[in-house]
Design a protein around this nucleic acid. Structure first.
Length: 410
DNA sequence: TCTGGGGTCCTAGGACCC
DNA sequence: TCTGGGGTCCTAGGACCC
């Protein structure tokens, strides 16, 4: 039986949430970039409000560039907790109406409404109800575009085809014709590289893609070629993912206000990031067997490295020590360290075996105690003394932030 | 005064074993 | 002692998404 899949996409999500929270920002060109306390000079726009988009401000644009084309742009630091709260509301609304819900990102969900809607007319009614419900629970500034189709690929194309506040329903017999009208770059799965490669083959539209024999696409793109061929006809075997499954990797990376020049700075920052990773790991009651550390230099070249451990770990010190050992031998300090990243994967949902050694027992007790402090008082409740100087510098160098904080209050 | 931060998935190629 | 081939595991790297 054919499925009925709905894709719901908040419009300008982070920016809308900020405008909802602060009436003074409504109707204005705003951009969410960076985070509170961070240095915005080296940030890019995460989300632009509708008004900012109209002035040409785009996602991933450097903030200084955005400011140049739109001088009145108000830059607001990101507030992940606020967005997570609204995402949770979105999910709760969806769960009321759907058989199955997949959170695709902070501001997008796929829901399977095959049974709940029964048919496409029912699905349209359901979409309108969901939209009304979202408005009531998330605020009137937060609008969503909705697409309904037989699969995820087309549902997402549909929701993207009308913004903001659109509702686009593509019934099975309309799929082929609808897909034909969409630009290749709009397909979730065709990125810049693929678009370029296709263009080199003379393929610049769905129509031209359809003329390339399936076998030829497979020859050129392997299994991805099969997907491309099917996608050009709006066919996909995509199924909703079970989003109750735990994450497969947890990581943090950070671009420094100024490139780091010394080993102690690198080491200290790795530890601070490893602590953040470890904290999230323990929150999810997981341990990691693989540790990855990566660096990006001032000239934008980078290098990463991974390590598989014998014993799963979940404490920041061990993670940072491994990250350091991975990175140190290949570090080229003279290039200036622009970004550092620490990530863990091969996660397991098992409890750490209780250590027999007293020293390690003590360490576990300390970690447990610190976790309870953090649970109670938040992520910044404690810091290792060795990372304190960095945190002080982070706070005091944020002149943009002071400026913005005032902009926020007015 | 360039280019964030959070992820997922796939493939190529080397090492190792039989 | 030399040689070949297949399978599997591991890692690096790249493409994609928001």
């Amino acid at each position: 039986m054919d499925k009925i899949i709905m894709h719901i996409d908040f419009n300008s999500f982070f920016a809308s949430v900020e405008q909802q929270a602060n009436p003074h920002l409504r109707g204005k060109a705003i951009a969410v970039a960076g985070k509170a306390g961070g240095d915005l000079r080296r940030s890019v726009v995460t989300t632009a409000s509708r008004e900012a988009k109209a002035r040409g401000v785009k996602t991933a644009m450097a903030t200084w560039e955005a400011k140049k084309i739109c001088p009145e742009l108000i830059i607001v630091p990101g507030d992940p907790q606020k967005y997570a709260m609204i995402t949770e509301r979105l999910l709760n609304v969806c769960r009321k109406y759907a058989d199955n819900v997949e959170q695709f990102s902070t501001d997008e969900v796929f829901i399977d409404v095959t049974l709940a809607a029964d048919n496409y007319f029912g699905a349209s009614m359901l979409a309108l109800m969901i939209r009304r419900d979202l408005k009531a629970t998330c605020g009137s500034v937060c609008t969503a575009s909705i697409g309904v189709a037989p699969n995820k690929l087309v549902a997402k194309l549909a929701s993207e085809s009308v913004k903001p506040n659109g509702l686009t329903v593509v019934r099975p017999h309309e799929v082929e014709a609808f897909v034909r009208t969409r630009p290749l770059a709009d397909f979730c799965g065709i990125g810049r590289q693929t678009e370029k490669r296709l263009a080199e083959l003379g393929v610049t539209s769905v129509d031209t893609l359809r003329t390339v024999p399936r076998a030829r696409l497979i020859e050129l793109f392997k299994s991805y070629g099969e997907w491309l061929h099917d996608a050009s006809f709006g066919q996909a075997t995509d199924v909703l993912k079970d989003d109750t499954l735990p994450a497969k990797s947890i990581g943090h990376s950070y671009t420094f206000p100024h490139d780091l020049q010394t080993l102690p700075e690198v080491k200290k920052n790795l530890l601070a990031m490893a602590d953040k990773v470890a904290w999230r790991l323990r929150q999810q009651k997981m341990v990691a067997k693989r540790i990855t550390a990566y660096v990006r230099y001032g000239d934008f070249g980078g290098d990463g490295s991974a390590r598989l451990l014998n014993v799963p770990v979940s404490d920041g010190l061990t993670i940072s020590q491994n990250a350091w050992q991975l990175l140190a031998p290949q570090l080229e300090l003279e290039r200036g360290v622009r970004l550092l990243g620490v990530s863990v994967s091969e996660l397991q949902n098992v409890a750490l075996p209780t250590s027999l050694f007293r020293k390690e027992q003590r360490m576990q007790q300390v970690v447990t105690a610190l976790d309870s402090v953090q649970t109670k008082f938040g992520a910044d409740a404690w810091r290792r003394a060795s990372t304190l100087q960095t945190s002080f510098r982070e706070r005091t160098s944020g002149w943009h932030y002071d400026h913005l904080a005032m902009a926020n209050q007015t």
